[in-house]
Amino acid sequence: MSTILTYVAVSNGKLKRSSLEVLSHCRELAKVNGYKSEAVIIDSNASRFAEQVAKYGPDTVYVIEHPIFRDHMNQPLLDALEMVVKQSNPMLTAFASTEAVKDVLGALAMRLDAKALPDVASFELKDGAVESLRPIMAAKLMARTKVVGDRMLVSVRSGSYDVSESEIQPEIKKLDFTYNENALKMELRDIITSSGGGVDLAEAPVVVSGGRGIKDEAGKKMVHDLADLMGGAVGASRAVTESGLFPATAQIGQTGKVVSPQIYFAVGISGAIQHVAGMSNSKVIVAINKDPEAPIFDIATYGLVGDLYKILPPLIEEVKKAQS
């Protein structure tokens, strides 16, 4: 029987929502096609998460646990993925398109002689082929892109599918993974987290993003205050990461991160196509902009026309009231 394997990533001690979206979709694809759905967790504490993954209905959960996976490094991750693919022998291996996955997908495809579809917005199985829609040309349009083969890889943009549970009692298989750290040709020297204590922007339920309309530290502080108040993360458009007002880690868009929170606040962001590509899967988009013609209003669920410096202070107060 053919198998679809999903790599479930862990971040800040939690399963990544974007991975669970992919696992949920793969379980349904497997059901329709009469395939097996399997999952793999690769982490320094992988065993802890096996039961949680069971909720999303894979027939088998592979567990690869090793201290080396505490932080991301491409060499050991590649070795672990190679190991589980050889064990599970899936026709398709699916991933959430995280930065860690972007780091290894091409290398894994080359190592396994597999065919890869990176960063897709959706995908389907058709007669042994995988057909996907991928944003291209800086997200101006989508290319219907297809691969055929007995070893295929696909990585999926965050927010493309809903998470759904379907609990079963999966078989849990622990794979023995040994790694000789001396064989590493690389060394992770440091991890620099910006303000927000290393919150994974791509996983945050609320994202408050600043753009060109934010002129100074005072404006930036209001963006941070609103994000903190809502338990969210701070994002930014390219204009203000380039100017240095916001850190490069915060950049959202086709060249930055793709996010799909419950609420996305675009504060002083005009809505250039490259930015929209990184946030258009958000459930609710709130835009605050003084230019009523700004393209962001074409996609916003709620658009507030006005000066962000005048709107944010009462908005922060109203959110506080609503929460109390």
Binding site: A109, K115, A116, L117, A121, E131, L133, P135, A139, K140, L141, M142, A143, R144, T145, K146, V147, V148, G149, A277, S280, I285, P292, F297, D298, I299, A300, T301, Y302, G303, L304, V305, G306, D307, K310, I311, P313, P314
Partner: peptide, 25 residues
């Protein structure tokens, strides 16, 4: 080549929602 492009589609459009104007408060 391992991939084949079989066609192109416009980006899916999000419908605009409500546009609000008035006093900040």
């Amino acid at each position: 080549a391992s991939t084949e492009i079989t066609g192109y589609e416009p980006m899916p459009e999000r419908q605009p929602g409500k546009k609000l104007e008035g006093e900040p408060v």
